[in-house]
């Protein structure tokens, strides 16, 4: 089993993602350069955070057209687990693998702070080890992380169980105060209808080690590894 961590020019959480997998879980993970045209040999793909291609034009807009993404899109459509974190989520929206868009934070300022998330769908490869309703603590760090979609899309996402994580307060309530960036319906992470593509603005790659104040993020990578192992078995 081998997990790909894609490196775009401007990725800056690539090392953190790789370490979460290799140091945090002891699984095999390797970088894949954005100019590669194949991801053969890999069983899952992580799109890390950062500022791919400088986030010029729009966050994630150029990365969506990079050579490697064409094969990632194909793999995702045939069921391979693909996990976009922060800028990776933005890229997934730009490719159309996920619906909606990430726009400027409500405050118009970059925000780096811990948030609480509630898990609302544990039927994805990334969340199967946790109970629905479980609270996760992770940091966010983004300037353009407000999830936006039109009413109809939101309705479909909600009904289809595609809202995987929501910003909540310590009591698990999705209040306006608990919503750090003005995301619609407090959405922090969504998946595609099949559940194999997940986008998440907060950073599990920065919350997998007791030294960082939270190990909650490790649970997502663990779930992914379990999924891959069970498929292989």
């Amino acid at each position: 089993m081998k997990i790909a961590v894609v490196r775009f020019p401007g990725s800056n959480c690539d090392q953190d993602c790789l370490r979460a997998l290799t140091d945090g879980l002891g699984v095999k993970a390797e970088y894949v350069w954005h100019k590669e045209t194949s991801i053969a040999g890999f069983d899952a793909v992580i799109l890390p955070g950062g500022f791919s291609y400088g986030d010029y034009l729009r966050c994630g807009a150029i990365a969506a057209f990079s050579p490697v993404m064409q094969s990632v899109i194909k793999a995702a459509n045939s069921g391979m687990p693909v996990f976009g974190i922060c800028n990776g989520f933005q890229i997934l929206c730009e490719t159309g693998l996920l619906r909606g868009a990430l726009i400027r934070n409500r405050s118009l300022l970059f925000l780096c702070q811990p948030v609480c998330l509630k898990l609302e769908n544990n039927r994805t490869p990334f969340t199967r080890l946790s109970d629905e309703g479980a609270i996760f603590r992770m940091p966010i760090a983004h300037g353009e992380g407000a999830y936006y979609a039109d009413e109809q899309t939101l309705e479909e996402l909600e009904e289809g169980g595609q809202v995987v994580f929501r910003y909540v307060n310590e009591d698990g309530q999705p209040t306006s105060e608990a919503n750090p960036n003005g995301s619609r319906n407090n959405i922090a992470g969504i998946c595609n209808p099949a559940g194999n593509v997940l986008g998440l603005m907060p950073h599990p790659d920065r919350s997998w080690d007791h030294r960082l104040g939270s190990e909650d993020g490790l649970q997502l990578f663990k779930s992914l590894v379990e999924t891959l192992l069970s498929v292989a078995a």
């Binding site: 800056n12 953190d16 300022l109 970059f110 925000l111 780096c112 940091p139 790659d205 030294r211 960082l212």
Partner: peptide, 14 residues
Amino acid sequence: VFRQYDHTVRAGAV
């Protein structure tokens, strides 16, 4: 001020 600085990247701010 500090909220605008990414202090958690590189997963090392203890």
